[in-house]
């Protein structure tokens, strides 16, 4: 199977302000968030990045989505390098994270058209796709309601739809079900399965083991900015539960009780 994403030796560190040093209780002026991280995702698969808070999952996804630049290394999305051609990568990917918010003042309908325009989607195609996605997620019921007046679940559905207005083949979801009620979370996970069936490549980051076990073909475990293991789900688990494998890896890397 063809590689959709090749991540090679990513390194990313952040300067710590005095305030951050106090919060992190450290004298170090630099925090290494991602340290020589490499992995590969195949076309048409769902790849799950698993790791505790602060492990470097979000930083990795933000580098792949070109929101931030790596200090070293590169990520190649469908043959396009994030380092050499970030604009090219942005047109190929859809990115959904809780950090990306929608403007409260506008309606889902307006925002869909706005982002569709920015992605250069043909008007007719955009209208058809909007009708299909709005119906699927039930957004058509509140398409003309301002984002400010929507519930968290409704907002997440709108964000999800807007992240894929341009029908990208490569989609990145950072903690896609975080903060959602069980019904909305189910809608999102079902949609990820649909996208996989359509042949899309999906990268998700999560710390929910069941989500990875249910959806992912491959899994990578990140601890302290390093990729501890990256393989097919069967290859990683080898007959054991993902939770057990993860905590064994965590103990080995960090030491002590997980």
């Amino acid at each position: 199977m063809q590689d959709a994403l090749i991540v090679k030796n990513l390194v990313k560190s952040f300067k710590l302000s005095r305030k951050q040093q106090r919060i992190e209780k450290t004298n170090l002026k630099v925090k290494v968030a991602v340290n020589g991280l490499s992995f590969t995702a195949k076309k048409g698969e769902i790849y799950g990045l698993l790791g505790p808070n602060g492990a470097g999952k979000t930083t990795t996804l933000r580098i792949i989505s070109t929101l931030i630049k790596a200090d070293e290394g590169d990520a190649v999305v469908d043959g396009v390098s994030v380092r050499d051609n970030p604009d090219g990568v942005r047109s190929k990917i859809g990115f959904l994270t809780s950090e990306l918010k929608l403007e409260d003042f506008f309606t889902p309908n307006y925002l869909y058209d706005y982002f569709s325009n920015l992605h250069g989607v043909d008007k007719e195609i955009s209208e058809k796709r909007k009708a299909k996605l709005f119906k699927k997620f039930g957004i058509d019921r509140f398409a003309e309601v301002k984002v400010a007046d929507l519930s968290t679940g409704m907002k997440q559905k709108v964000s999800l739809v807007i992240s894929i207005v341009h029908d990208p083949d490569f989609i990145i979801f950072d903690e896609p079900t975080n903060g959602l009620d069980v019904i909305t979370a189910k809608t999102v996970t079902d949609f990820l399965t649909d996208l996989k069936v359509e042949g899309k490549t999906i990268i998700i980051s999560t710390h929910i083991f069941s989500l990875v076990e249910k959806l992912c073909d491959r899994v990578g475990v990140i601890i302290n900015g390093r990729m501890v293991v990256s393989d097919t789900l069967t290859g990683v688990c080898n007959g054991r539960s993902l939770e057990d494998v993860f905590f064994d890896l965590y103990k080995k890397e960090v030491g002590g009780n997980a």
Partner: peptide, 17 residues
Amino acid sequence: GEKERGTIATLLITPVK
């Protein structure tokens, strides 16, 4: 305001220069 609310990142993720 857009930075504060996190909506600017949504714009920066589009292929617009």
